[in-house]
Amino acid sequence: MNIEKLKEIVRTVLPSVDVVIGYKKGLDALHPVPCFVTSPDEIDALVLNPACTHNLAAYLPSLKKKTAVVVKGCESRTVVQLVQEGLIKRENVVVIGVPCQGVLSARKVLNAINHQPVVEAAFENDAVIVKTRKAETRLALNDVASDKCLTCQYPTPVLSDHLAGEQVESKVDEQAAYQDIRQFDAQSLEERRAYWLKEFDRCIRCYACRNACPMCVCRESCIAETRDPHWMSQKATLNEKMMFHMIHAIHLAGRCTECGECERACPMGIPVAKLKKKINMEMKELFGYEPGISIDDKPPMYTFKVEEEKIEEHKIR
């Protein structure tokens, strides 16, 4: 993550676009925030480090401007998927790719430092050094990286007009990409049910997961809220919370680019990205399809084959 290189690119790109979306200093060292650069004197405020986690491509569908956007590997897939589905126009985005060694999970860092307020943080190649009022802690990046990064297959953006840094190879082989999901699947039905009920019980239906998701494009018309059609009530009960998460997961089938925003955005720490990753695993197995790889693909749920090689007729038992 080369900030000088990035600034240089932004400087050359800025005159040809209305806005550049990047990151700037935020709440604390663990929480940089998205920033919208429109004039050259704002460029110096840009930052780039493993705490820059937001998927900035999420802003693209609602911005009706020519936009340059800073994206890491997984987020470049979001841009591809958005273009593929016709939700944004390729000619309206300039993609500034950032090869990525993994980003932090602020939640994991805070757990590791006992939730002390962070005063400062320094980033090294494979570690982060976090200073609180009481102590300084060195944490291996691998231990506090976002879950999505631990199995990431595309650390280098799959699409970019400019690349800020050297290509990075995936550290995980393809076989292991879904190992976490397979492990989860190895549990009994009752265990899985209990797990999700306990997690969903905490959900406050704030929809941060949905609004942060770049591929949740219904926005104002989300059926979790509309009265017409009337899919669900506003009760804060488990069946309704569960239903909401099924809506998010199933509407993302074959479209989720595994950016992990839904999970990161959740203030209650509910691992909702897992649901979508499971569906992605099945999509890959059934249709050999991965979302956000090629602009010319078609999402598997939008198409079909007369003979489906992998779908067999089910027997009732």
Binding site: I204, R205, C206, Y207, R210, R227, Q234, A265
Partner: peptide, 21 residues
């Protein structure tokens, strides 16, 4: 940069707006 979600209000100890359905 606001995403227009409900996290801030639902986590707020003073927010009291409601809907009736």
């Amino acid at each position: 940069r606001c995403l227009g979600c409900g996290a801030c209000t639902y986590l707020c100890p003073t927010c009291y707006c409601f809907n009736i359905t």
